[in-house]
Design a protein around this nucleic acid. Structure first.
Lengths: 402, 402
DNA sequence: GAGGCTTATTTTTAGGCGCGAACTAACCTC
DNA sequence: GAGGTTAGTTCGCGCCTAAAAATAAGCCTC
């Protein structure tokens, strides 16, 4: 409600941003189409796109013949104006990916990690960034930014600080550390669930929704909430700790120490834990992923009961989000969420319907996620792109040339 | 992220809005103070305030001598530029209040209601509005808008529609009905918890916070969530149904039909219900308010256990909000919330601390509400004011003269 | 009590911006 | 190649804010 004052320069910046965003999200468009879809006059659309073409942000992308008139020239964001890097810092390894501005993946590097300690992780990130650049021949000066998705919450001050209880990170100044390890482009550190949510919003099942909840079920559970097209962060970027909301007051003890957290019931670890307790036949699976697969396909009564209960808890948890946020879309993602959802989406939806209020439930569509295994990295790479689009790539603010 | 295009007219509108909002919220200010606090140049602050003075939106409010220079002339929002009406539609009666633009209460009317049926309610609202106007001699043409706080959720389309399961309202076109009952000024229908939250944000314990959660415990429980200074509404204005989030999976059946809702544990009705079950000595109190008072002051073991448990459930519920929204402030309000909080705030805070994650909890301050019993009406009256401030009282858009 | 000093506000000037109208460009059909 | 049609550009206008200059309105000192 309380906005900041604005000047004519802000006007231009905003309209540049609007045009650039329209072109980025809705592919090649002619100047007149742009004018129609943004509401700007043809004159203004023309002068601004002219400016953006001069600056190298846009390129022409062929033309479309029309029935009897001058053909339209299609414009698009120049894929090689700059590049972006997305990094997924996981508990077992680091994935670094390089994209051009059309979000085409140019290079990928996977680096295994023995112990997720901040020092070595920062070094590996820097090494990975260098590797993807040299592998694809992209000069470092062309990189608009490096996005980093991390487990745990990210506090954004002058320099991002990471808190991740589960891997023992307490107030780790990761942004500074990565910078000191030799990464020069602007850094964007963000919680992995939020970067993955961003990927679903731009390229996956969240496309087009203004109010959406992206539920991520992996070993634990997390959520990214988008309201009014904006990712929800809260006062200190700690928002969205859905996994540790109480759903069974006085229930099972969670690894965070509290009783009855959703994560103690609905994550892969919790499901497998409850299964181990229920059936003493001991899964032989080597890792969580195949263990969950085994649990989900098992026909034993114990397995089926665990799965059924988990579906119930997850549905209730989703219903809580539906009641609180009233989204138009819920996207179920994360490796465990996709595995569970592939077989049980109907029943998850039914459990949600059972626990949610009729009215908000009637507004929502619940879908499976549609981004691949590198969603965290893709989402991380969108962060510098989002920054570029939001500022309208204002040439007056400091920016590295393309 | 995706904004709309803007023109020079939007610029002016926005800067008018910024100045007007600064004056409304931070009392009388001189032109130069305005310039400093908004970031606008002194010249612009001067021309815009000149315009607003001409239009009657502002008045001079004395001057302050300075040490050796020209004294500053203080400006303020003209209290009699227009008036606003706030209506609280409750389950037992309707309260109508008239304010000037300085939010000074000019007149109040309380109308008892036998059965909350939409038709009679609309008629009563219209009658109440007419009464407060004639009582204070304010002409109807001076009323900028009438805000109406209602139980249940409000769907805002071309005309607001109310859903309130608890009182049997299903898709009631209240806005149209009130209009047809003879209320002419613009109508602003909103959920009562949200209007009360708005009152706390502007005049109560929420002042100054950009991310806040206003928890309302009455007969049932509700919440208003403010993120980034904006009241959270969701896709169809149904957001914030905290009372029916599951906190005890499979627990007590709630009046909404689902098991384990927070409202089945933490509202006054739930507390009294559990008390009746626990202690068969039967309260003799004539109404809920005094019954709760009795419960809270009773020294019986049963009463103390019920209160203690309720504090735990409420704390867990608040912790869920803290984890999900990461607010800087939690305000506990509502008649039952204030009664409970007056004696047990420490223990509610402790219960919240116990259930919330360390980090988001460390950012939050939990306080008692500071608005009086007419908070819903005051908050409702702020709705037209907020609309006025947001549009910058643009004289080009249709508006009734002051 | 006149001149100088200080601070507040208004006026003037300059640089931008988006829009609408008029204009040019590039194609098609007959 | 004339006429028609659609796409894109140019130009003048009205508005906007910022910066600089001018004016207003007090206080202080000698």
């Amino acid at each position: 409600m309380v906005r900041a004052r604005a000047t004519v320069r802000d006007l231009r910046r905003q309209n540049r941003s609007v045009l650039l965003t329209a072109l980025f999200l809705d592919g090649p468009l002619s100047r007149l189409q742009l004018s129609a879809s943004t509401g700007l006059s043809a004159a203004t659309a023309s002068t601004i796109t002219g400016e953006l073409l001069d600056e190298g942000l846009l390129t022409e992308a062929g033309s479309v013949e029309s029935d009897g008139g001058r053909p339209r020239v299609l414009l698009r964001v120049n894929p090689v104006f700059g590049h972006v890097v997305g990094v997924d810092v996981g508990e077992t390894g680091i994935k670094v990916e390089l994209f051009d501005l059309a979000m085409t993946r140019l290079s990928t590097v996977d680096l295994p990690v023995a112990a997720v300690r901040p020092g070595p992780v920062s070094e590996l990130v820097a090494a990975g960034v260098a590797q993807v650049l040299s592998a694809s021949g992209v000069p470092a000066s062309s990189v608009l930014g490096v996005g980093v998705g991390v487990p745990g919450t990210v506090e954004r001050g002058t320099s991002a600080v990471v808190h991740a209880q589960t891997i023992g990170w307490d107030a780790v100044p990761l942004e500074r550390m990565i910078r000191e390890a030799g990464v020069e482009p602007p850094l964007f550190v963000e919680n992995g669930a939020k970067t993955q949510g961003q990927a679903e919003m731009w390229f996956g099942a969240g496309r087009g929704a203004r109010h959406a909840v992206i539920v991520l079920v992996g070993s634990g559970v997390g959520v990214a909430v988008v309201t009014g097209g904006v990712m929800h962060r809260g006062a200190t970027s700690n928002a969205g700790e859905w996994g540790h909301t109480t759903i069974v007051y006085g229930g099972r003890r969670c690894r965070c120490g509290v009783r009855g957290c959703l994560e103690a019931y609905a994550g892969a670890e919790a499901m497998l834990g409850r299964y181990r307790e229920a059936a003493r036949d001991g899964s032989s699976a080597p890792d969580q992923v195949s263990a969950l697969e085994e649990l989900l396909t098992s026909r034993s009564a114990a397995a089926r009961r665990v799965v059924e209960e988990s579906v119930g808890y997850l549905g209730a948890g989703i219903a809580n989000l539906v009641n609180l946020f009233n989204p138009e879309r819920v996207v179920l993602g994360g490796w465990a969420g996709l595995a569970l959802g592939a077989r049980q989406l109907d029943r998850i939806v039914a459990a949600t319907a059972e626990h949610a209020l009729r009215h908000p439930y009637a507004q929502v569509r619940i879908e499976l996620g549609r981004t691949g295994p590198d969603a965290v990295a893709v989402g991380a790479a969108t962060l510098p792109v989002a920054a570029l689009l939001e500022t309208g790539a204002d040439p007056r603010s400091a920016r590295r040339a393309g």
